[in-house]
């Protein structure tokens, strides 16, 4: 099953590689990983999307918690949470296809942030599934380039991960 794990860790050199190394050393799946400092510059917030059996997910949580640099951790998928990912996708937009692509971007509430006479660059924020869905609608033939940030996640309401 797919899980979104969110954690706070010391914003120190090598902290990211401790997490990445843990996943590769123990053979865990890693679908995406995004990380950036928080309002407290000594802390980084990381969102990891992974999948595995309940036992594997339990181990992933425990092994992450065991890292000395990891200060707090939450498995967002165990409760109410929001998930967003940013995608920039550059598509071939020529002739009659231009209008259709524009409508498609509108339908998904995406924005065209750059255009030439033969390309559009669409910006879209949404769940991973919504981003997948737009890519599928556009079709691989028209896609020139796709850039995705990986998911960021946050708990709903009073579900807060803070030190």
């Amino acid at each position: 099953m797919r899980h979104i794990i969110s954690l706070l860790m010391e914003n120190e050199a090598g902290a990211l590689s401790r997490v990445a190394g843990l996943f590769s050393a123990r053979g865990y799946n890693i679908e995406s990983l995004s990380v950036a400092p928080t309002e407290d510059p000594t802390l980084s917030r990381m969102t990891i999307v992974t999948s595995g059996s309940d036992a594997v997910i339990e181990q992933i949580n425990k092994q992450l918690n065991k890292l000395v640099d990891v200060a707090a951790l939450i498995d967002l998928s165990e409760g109410g949470h929001l998930e967003r990912e940013l995608m920039l996708v550059k598509v071939r937009a020529e002739g009659g296809a231009r209008e259709g692509l524009k409508r498609m971007a509108d339908t998904f509430r995406g924005r065209i942030i750059d255009e030439t006479d033969h390309t559009y660059t669409i910006e879209l924020t949404g769940s991973c599934a919504e981003l997948d869905s737009l890519l599928e609608k556009i079709g691989r033939d028209l896609i020139l380039e796709t850039v995705r940030t990986g998911a960021s996640g946050i708990g709903c309401g009073d579900r807060i991960l803070k030190l």
Partner: peptide, 11 residues
């Protein structure tokens, strides 16, 4: 003492 040692290989 190490939670990750618990339920790693057996339930």
């Amino acid at each position: 003492i190490d939670p990750s040692s618990i339920a790693k290989r057996v339930k």
